[in-house]
Design a protein around this nucleic acid. Structure first.
Length: 431
DNA sequence: TCTGGGGTCCTAGGACCC
DNA sequence: TCTGGGGTCCTAGGACCC
């Protein structure tokens, strides 16, 4: 018997809500979080007042400022977002022992088996009990943190998420077992998690606009669109999807040697102007950052990927399998080699990125020549950064970029190569 | 003044091996 | 002389989510 015991909890317009706590004068105003007004950023969160002007998350800041010229644009206090997210999670964990964080502002809970614990004489049935508990949870988040949130409760993760979306803002909706298909059927296909703009468009070409129509569509139509997901999409569309909460993403997970090969760590930067001559310095800075994050998580990467986006937005990736490493110099070498091989077009570059994947937990250190030295050096740098902040120590090439040195790309590379032999860093303690 | 940055998962072609 | 078939790894790209 399927029961409505899976709960999706989502903090409403999370970044905006945190900004309003930090600056109460933003309450009641159209607020857009995400980069500066004239930069190249996009909207990461928009208040309902801003949405009334047609502002949506993912939209460029430029377009948002055209639609809502009088809105308040703020870049966002990201450390505060992380802090509030953690505190919200602590509250949520009081309500169920099974909580899986899906993102900074979203979590799933499993209430199976919790009915007896929460049951009260006034509750009509167990569904009413769980609904009351979900309301108490959003109320606790509002009371203790001042953050609005919504919750959806259903028999599956997918339906719970849809219900949560329907409950917004600041609402709670429980979809009882058996009521799923009636609720989901009339909804546009785009409402189902996993169906994005591309699939929506492909379905539209077959005259499929609603989930009820999707469910009736033959396999010959759905298979080319959803591939391996086809059966899962079909089940989700009638509310018979999985009730298990799945894996927590590595970024939100404590150290877990059993999940050792999943996950990736990446860092990318879009330039203010296309085609800077300091690309090499930026690449080294990105490589250093992902390596530092890998070391802090106690993992090493078996694959290094370079991402490059040209001025016309064509995006390419080049990757390479490596012996597991989290050493700065190794990743520098690989990234610069990939960049040399990848840059074929005589066009400006607007973004570069570095990703580490095939992560494995650090075993005993290998006794390879030079390996121990690199690791010791990186660890020393990590220790200084731990104390004085990330920017306290920089690679010479990265520093060059920060000081605004122009220099040709090949000049920058020479600096890097020179840095690889000798200890590459000039330690600089901030302040 | 076009279009961020962090991720996950799937597909498909080619290399390579048996 | 076209020449099978299966399995796995590597790589590049793309859809989707927040």
């Amino acid at each position: 018997m399927r029961l409505a015991r899976i709960c999706c909890l989502d903090l409403d317009t999370f970044f905006v809500s945190v900004e309003r706590i930090l600056d109460p004068s933003l309450c009641g105003k159209a607020v857009v979080v995400g980069g500066t007004k004239w930069g190249r950023g996009v909207v990461t969160s928009a208040s309902y007042e801003a949405r009334a002007f047609g502002v949506r998350s993912g939209m460029s800041i430029r377009e948002a400022s055209e639609r809502a010229p009088r809105a308040v644009f703020v870049p966002g206090h990201h450390e505060e977002f992380t802090s509030y997210s953690r505190r919200a999670r602590e509250i949520v964990e009081r309500f169920s022992p099974i909580v899986v964080a899906a993102s900074i502002d979203e979590a799933y809970l499993d209430f199976h088996g919790c009915e007896a614990l929460y049951r009260r004489p006034g509750d009509a049935d167990d569904d009413a009990t769980i609904l009351r508990v979900a309301r108490a949870m959003t109320q606790a988040i509002a009371d203790e943190l001042g953050l609005p949130s919504s919750a959806g409760v259903a028999t599956s993760k997918s339906t719970a998420k849809v219900a949560c979306g329907l409950a917004k803002p600041a609402g709670v909706l429980l979809v009882a077992s058996g009521a799923e298909e009636a609720l989901l059927g009339p909804l546009p296909v785009r409402k189902l998690p996993g169906i994005g703009p591309v699939s929506e468009e492909k379905l539209a070409r077959h005259g499929i606009a609603t989930l009820a129509e999707l469910v009736r569509a033959p396999d010959t139509v759905l298979r080319p669109i959803f591939g391996a997901y086809t059966e899962g999409v079909r089940r989700d569309a009638i509310g018979l999807g999985h009730a298990d909460l799945g894996r927590e993403r590595p970024a939100f997970r404590e150290h877990d040697p059993h999940g050792s090969t999943v996950g990736s760590i990446s860092n990318e930067r879009t330039f203010v102007e296309d085609g800077p001559s300091t690309t090499y310095g930026i690449l080294c800075g990105l490589a250093e950052r992902v390596c530092a994050r890998a070391r802090s998580r106690g993992v090493r990467a078996g694959r290094v990927t370079l991402r490059l986006r040209y001025a016309d937005f064509e995006t390419i990736t080049r990757s390479c399998t490596v012996a597991p490493t989290a050493a700065d110099v190794e990743v520098h070498r690989v990234v610069l080699r990939l960049y040399e091989a990848a840059r074929a077009r005589p066009l400006g570059v607007r973004l570069v990125g570095v990703a580490l994947s095939r992560l494995s937990f650090e075993g005993p250190q290998l006794e390879l020549p030079g390996f121990g030295e690199e690791v010791r050096r990186d660890r020393a740098v990590d220790a200084v950064r731990e104390k004085f902040g990330y920017d306290a120590v920089q690679l010479a090439t990265t520093l060059g970029r920060r000081r605004g040195q122009k220099g040709s790309a090949s000049g920058a590379r020479d600096q890097v190569d020179a840095g690889l032999g000798a200890p590459p860093r000039a330690p600089r303690v901030a302040r």
